[in-house]
Design a protein around this nucleic acid. Structure first.
Lengths: 162, 162
DNA sequence: TATCACTCTTACGTAAACGTAAGGGTTTGG
DNA sequence: CCAAACCCTTACGTTTACGTAAGAGTGATA
């Protein structure tokens, strides 16, 4: 009877492999382990971290949550909550709660940024008018510029003073 | 002839006053000065920083730019560029450039967050289906859950594995 | 077996925007 | 003139997500 040559040992990935496949650095992956976000499936005899393919998925998941604005610490809490939920529906309920909160937060951020974008547009529109300004005018004389067609936006007004 | 009692000395503000009026801390204002973002108009005989009313405006302007995502260092560059522009139109052109860049960046951020919000919504929709899941099911048995009505979103899939 | 490319652990460094504390002066109202 | 309330400078502390370096062992290949 031929010894069963550990079939999976062939598909195990070293930390560098994982790094290449995810675009992360080895250091980052080490950090995730320190924070309890990802553990290698096993260690080689010599101590090398050996991962399975799903390690890549886990890291992509982490990345996704980071993009959403979760800190690594929050992600850790996330995992712990999940692990400590006795039943699937309960775990799902918790996840739902967290996602719901984040969704609201994300929408608020979008609203805030939208307002800022508008303000930027207005300031830019105002600045367009400065093209027609006397080319020789010194900047210290600007700020007011004699214009009264509309208000000077705060973004422009603030800098010109002093 | 009555000595002209320095009329403005009456309207000068101490750092604490500025702090109260802007909601910033004294430390923050000190920092802004270290970074070259705001200098007191004068110092009292004893060394106290004395500001004029426009100091408040300057801080509000800083706040605005911070909200827009500029770092204090970037704001400093901003001010220097302004001060070093010989002519008003040239200074305005530079400001326009910076604002244009930031506007583009802001819009990109909005787009990214919008996609994330959609992804969150999808994940939440998926999780709604978990309510009907067997109440006694252990979370380890979940993840797949036997459902095949649609794909498990990455946000949900990533956490359930292992 | 000799290499060379990897990996390990340990641990200090970094950038941002302040927080906080220490040890003293300064203003100002009474 | 005194005390409470402020202010000054100096300088180390904090958090986040890694970067970077050192010194040494490991694995796969020639």
């Amino acid at each position: 009877m031929p010894s069963e040559i550990s079939a999976e040992s062939l598909s195990l990935l070293k930390v560098g492999d994982i790094a290449r496949r995810t675009g992360k650095t080895v250091r980052a992956i080490h950090l995730y382990e320190e924070l309890g976000l990802l553990n290698p499936a096993v260690r080689s005899k010599g101590g090398f971290r050996m991962y399975r393919g799903d390690g890549v998925k886990r890291i992509e998941w982490i990345q996704k949550l980071q993009d959403m604005g979760f800190s690594l610490t929050e992600i850790k809490v996330f995992l712990r909550v999940w692990e400590e939920s006795a039943t699937a529906p309960k775990a799902m309920a918790t996840v739902r709660e967290i996602f719901t909160d984040k969704l609201r937060e994300t929408r608020e951020t979008i609203a805030r940024l939208t307002r800022l974008a508008e303000e930027l547009s207005e300031s830019l529109a105002f600045l367009e008018g400065c093209r027609s300004c006397d080319q020789g005018q010194h900047q210290r004389e600007c700020g007011g510029c004699g214009r009264s067609d509309h208000e000077v936006p705060l973004l422009v007004d603030g800098i010109a003073k002093r």
